[in-house]
Amino acid sequence: MLLFYPVPPALNLDTVWTQGLRNANDAPVHLHVSLDAAQQETDGPILVVDATALPSVPSDPITRDGLVQVSHVPSAAVQNLDPYRPPHPVAAGGGYVTRSLPEDIAVLLIHRRGVWDLPKGHQDPGEDLETCALREVKEEVGIKTLHLRRPLGTTQHGYPDGDMYAVKTTYWYLMQTPERSFSPEQNEGIRRVAWARWSVASQHIGYETLRRHMAHVESAVRTALG
C-alpha cells in the first residue's frame, strides 16, 4: 500500500532525508491514500510512502477524510526522495486466468525477468481498463479467446521512471479461456507460460504486493468458479 504526503512549504526535503517526517509535540502525521487527493492539496513536492515500512499503522487506518494517521514516517519509508522524483500515475490491467480442477483451482502464470508473475500491462490512451486487461493478457500468453468474468480490485506499487516516480495502479479481473496452448510474448521478456495450482502460485509469485492480493481475492475467485 502506498501513501502520499504533500510537503508543506516550510519543510525542507533534506530534513526529511535525515530525520523522516515527524510533527512537533508528537502530533500525528497525516498521509493521503490517493495520489490524486494529494495533488489537489499542493502544487509542490509529494512524497510517496511505503506503508509496509512504517513502524505502526492502525488496524482500521483510513479516516473519513481519506487520510491515514501515523506517529511518524522514517526516511527509509519514503520511496521518491533520493533524489526527489515527482510522482505520476500509471494505469494497467491484468488477469487472473483460471480454470477449475477437481477440488482446486489453477491460475495461469508467466515467467518474466527471472520471477513468476501474472499477465498484465499498461493502458493505452483512450482504452478502457477492461479492454486493456483483455488485450494485455492475450498478447502476453499468446491466445485469441479470453472471457472476463468479474473485477478483482487493484494493486499499487511504485518505481523510478526517469526523472519521475511512477505510481502504478493495476486493475485485476477474473478471466477464463478454453485454450490450452500458449505462446509467451518473447519481446516482453516472457520466457514461460504455465498453469499452477492456486496454493503453489501464491507461494511462487515474485512480488509481495501480488502475493497479498492473491490471498485477499482467493475466496471471491473460488466462489465465482463454484
Score class of each variant (00 low, 15 high):
residue 20 G to M: 10
residue 20 G to A: 14
residue 21 L to I: 15
residue 22 R to N: 06
residue 23 N to G: 02
residue 25 N to L: 09
residue 30 H to C: 14
residue 31 L to R: 13
residue 31 L to W: 13
residue 32 H to M: 14
residue 33 V to I: 15
residue 33 V to N: 07
residue 33 V to R: 13
residue 34 S to I: 13
residue 34 S to A: 15
residue 35 L to G: 13
residue 36 D to Y: 08
residue 37 A to V: 09
residue 38 A to E: 12
residue 38 A to Q: 10
residue 38 A to T: 13
residue 40 Q to V: 00
residue 41 E to M: 14
residue 42 T to E: 06
residue 42 T to R: 01
residue 42 T to W: 09
residue 44 G to C: 01
residue 46 I to E: 11
residue 46 I to L: 10
residue 46 I to S: 07
residue 47 L to Y: 11
residue 48 V to C: 01
residue 49 V to S: 03
residue 49 V to F: 04
residue 50 D to F: 05
residue 50 D to R: 06
residue 50 D to C: 07
residue 52 T to Y: 15
residue 52 T to A: 15
residue 52 T to S: 15
residue 53 A to M: 15
residue 53 A to F: 11
residue 54 L to Y: 10
residue 56 S to M: 10
residue 57 V to F: 01
residue 59 S to I: 04
residue 59 S to R: 03
residue 60 D to W: 00
residue 60 D to F: 03
residue 62 I to A: 10
residue 63 T to P: 04
residue 63 T to M: 00
residue 64 R to V: 07
residue 66 G to N: 02
residue 67 L to V: 09
residue 67 L to K: 12
residue 67 L to H: 10
residue 68 V to P: 14
residue 68 V to F: 12
residue 68 V to K: 10
residue 70 V to A: 00
residue 70 V to K: 08
residue 70 V to D: 05
residue 71 S to C: 12
residue 71 S to G: 12
residue 72 H to E: 05
residue 73 V to D: 01
residue 74 P to W: 10
residue 76 A to G: 12
residue 76 A to T: 13
residue 78 V to E: 03
residue 80 N to R: 00
residue 80 N to I: 03
residue 81 L to P: 05
residue 81 L to H: 05
residue 81 L to A: 12
residue 81 L to W: 14
residue 82 D to W: 11
residue 83 P to G: 05
residue 83 P to Y: 04
residue 85 R to S: 01
residue 86 P to L: 00
residue 86 P to N: 03
residue 87 P to D: 06
residue 87 P to M: 09
residue 90 V to E: 15
residue 91 A to C: 11
residue 91 A to P: 04
residue 91 A to I: 06
residue 92 A to L: 00
residue 92 A to H: 01
residue 92 A to N: 02
residue 92 A to W: 03
residue 94 G to F: 08
residue 95 G to I: 07
residue 95 G to F: 09
residue 95 G to S: 07
residue 96 Y to K: 09
residue 96 Y to D: 03
residue 102 P to E: 10
residue 102 P to N: 15
residue 102 P to F: 08
residue 103 E to Y: 13
residue 103 E to I: 02
residue 104 D to L: 04
residue 104 D to R: 09
residue 104 D to G: 04
residue 105 I to S: 10
residue 106 A to Y: 07
residue 107 V to W: 14
residue 107 V to E: 13
residue 108 L to M: 04
residue 108 L to E: 10
residue 109 L to G: 03
residue 110 I to F: 01
residue 112 R to M: 10
residue 112 R to H: 08
residue 112 R to P: 00
residue 113 R to A: 15
residue 113 R to L: 14
residue 114 G to F: 12
residue 116 W to Y: 11
residue 119 P to A: 13
residue 120 K to T: 14
residue 122 H to E: 11
residue 124 D to A: 05
residue 124 D to K: 07
residue 126 G to M: 11
residue 128 D to G: 06
residue 130 E to C: 04
residue 131 T to W: 05
residue 132 C to D: 08
residue 137 V to T: 15
residue 138 K to V: 02
residue 138 K to F: 01
residue 138 K to R: 13
residue 138 K to D: 02
residue 139 E to S: 05
residue 140 E to S: 04
residue 140 E to D: 07
residue 141 V to S: 00
residue 142 G to D: 11
residue 145 T to G: 03
residue 146 L to I: 03
residue 148 L to K: 06
residue 148 L to H: 05
residue 149 R to S: 05
residue 150 R to N: 03
residue 151 P to D: 03
residue 151 P to I: 00
residue 151 P to T: 02
residue 152 L to M: 00
residue 152 L to F: 02
residue 153 G to F: 07
residue 153 G to W: 08
